[in-house]
Design a protein around this nucleic acid. Sequence first.
DNA 1: AGCACGCCGACT
DNA 2: GTCGGCGTGCTC
Length: 793
Amino acid sequence: MFASVIVSVSSNSVDRLFTYKIPDSLVDTIRVGHRVFIPFGNRDIQGFVIEIKETADIDVSKVKEINRIMDGTPVLTEELIQLSKKIASYYVDRQISVIEAILPVALKTKSKTILKLSEHAGNEATVLFNELQKNNEVIVRNLDKDELKKIVPFMKSKELIEETIIAQHTKKKTNRAVRSLYTGNMPSERAVKQRELLEWIESEDAPITLLRIRDAGYSVQLVDALEVKGLVERVDVIVDRDPYDTRVFFESERHTLNDEQQIAYNKIKDAMIENRQETFLLHGITGSGKTEVYLETIEHALNKGKEAIMLVPEIALTPQMVHRFKARFGDDVAVLHSALSHGEKYDEWRKIKEGRASIAIGARSSIFAPFKNIGIIIIDEEHESTYKQGERPLYDARQVALWRAAYFNCPLILGSATPSLESYARSEKGVYKRLELKHRAKAQPLPETTIVDMALSRQEGNISIVSDILREKIIERIEKNEQIILLLNRRGYAHFLLCQDCGHVPMCPNCDISLTYHKSNGTLMCHYCAFETPVPNKCPECQSTAVTFRGSGTEKVEEILRDMFNTEVVRMDIDTTRNKGMHETLLSHFVEDNIPILLGTQMIAKGLDFPNVTLVGVLNADTTLNIPDFRANERTFQLLTQVAGRAGRGDKTGEVIFQTYNPDHYAILDAQMNRYIDFYKKEMEYRKIARYSPYYFHVLFTITSENFNHCVKASHDVSTKLLEHISNQSIVIGPSPSPIERIKNKFRFQILLKYRHEPALLEILEQLDQRYYVAYKKSGVSLRIDVDPQFIM
DNA sequence: AGCACGCCGACT
DNA sequence: GTCGGCGTGCTC
């Protein structure tokens, strides 16, 4: 017996099947989808069985034997194998890369070569070995060039023996921690903080995690200082993992569906009963109780003995939401999201695969949940761009959901208060069945929205980021003990630094973007690469001291609000939620301690349901409007509508303020009046004229290189190739420099292909991909092909 | 001649 | 991705 195996090597040249002999001992156990350990070239690697067959299709003398299977049961089903092929082909990527995206990272292996001392090693080899070894072995990967060179002769003479081992991705969860190396000499008298910290570390038996150190108010720099002095060292410690174990969930009482919800549910249920693949667009205004419909639908699937997948945007994967599902379905729910460690994700994945959970809830990649009998797939907030993966493989979970639903003959629900234009257009055409929820579930009125013209506010003498109207409303709420959510879509302290004398703005040396000032760590940071530099006190160009901060970010506004209202503020942005669990901690702090103001970036716009929030303010409704992307209007409309929906979800009526410099823009006006259809029509008109999605399909080509000329040349080459092969109804825009012309020291050019019908497209894309796969190695030019891009940047 | 280096093709 | 084979060209 033989097996067709796809090997775990990400290279175009091996993205095909290799035939291996199945050893007699495995003939009875091995199945399609098994992970196997195989000899490949001169090393041993991992692969996946794609097919089992009687005969080999190549010369048997070339065929090697599978070493062993790596798991008791197959990790991939037939369906997932087919799916991986489909995704690889549609998004122009390698099947192995897709398979690796489908499986939890814990199943990826890292091999490492270690050296050991041979029995007949001479003195010289022993000395060298002792010099390089750690734990009685030398890890080749960790050696530098010179060290490698020294080793080679001994390896050839077999004085050192080498061995390749496969290391699983961490199964145990580790955290960085600090251990004392204290031997009696303290840091100097003046280094008070250092002494304090060292004493603490010294007093504990076990290493203290950096997390605890930071929580206790010591900076990482202090640890660095102690480390430099050789008084402490950093180590990894193993910590327990139990994402939701310790919490108790109570059976939640079931809400009865209202008429609208019942009608929607019945339609979906009928499709489920008939095993019909039908896509429903559940268009329900914020607070209309879409989740109730989801819960009922999932329950119905479970009663039929089937499974359910529910996707939510990462930011909506709040404890609040998880709690609701856990309360209803208990342990039947597996939750997958980015805050989990590799090991935790692997645990949840196994729950699904082994049938211990029938519901998978999670972000984008949960669409790959290894179920065998899916009865319903739900995508909540379907308009969110997070369903499209931003790195390779560049798949869109909405598209994958369609494919999986088709395979299982089950309905797919796309839910949103502000459906993407694509989905709504399909519902208009009858491709999707539209279901409407037009009323808020608890019959609360939608909040009243006021638009504040900030230009006018400035003319009237208020240059603050908080307009008079908003300030009054905030004071009012604080007095009434009600809560406020403020949205500011810009993190950091100041957007950029400006020299008032020469107009100089410090830029990132690696990217064409201004540096953002972060006050908390006193640095200028680039939001596109990791560049960080201390804030200059003089203009680096003209030495003037008249440098000012411009464009307020959340960090600064937090200060302003504290001063202005003399109150506590909870700030939520990437910077305050970077550490695990902070998201949850900040939100419960806001709710339980009844903090008056929650200030945040767009992560606070979605899914939060706080009854005591009666005022929502958008400090600058324009930030998303000015982004050079054809979806900028749509995103602005969606964001404003979503965030406005956070107000007045309890018994008290809500109120919303949009501060803007574009008070007449239809995206803002329609969001104010909650006119989805009006917005849809106007935006469709624009898309039609400008020939954008949904009228056209897109492929975005991004060409990057450190060498400007290579970049330009390759860009023209790509556009020439495209123009040669596509029909004359398609449009090629560019090449043009990307909106950010340089990121991480690489020049960027882009080409946008717009087409309606292009039968040979796949072939052209594959050719281009192949061509630039080769080109990249030669001249360092890379081509990224993004099919159905979400961002044209 | 001896070897460092980069390119290319093969890997079942 | 990684390795080895091979040709080019530099140095002793």
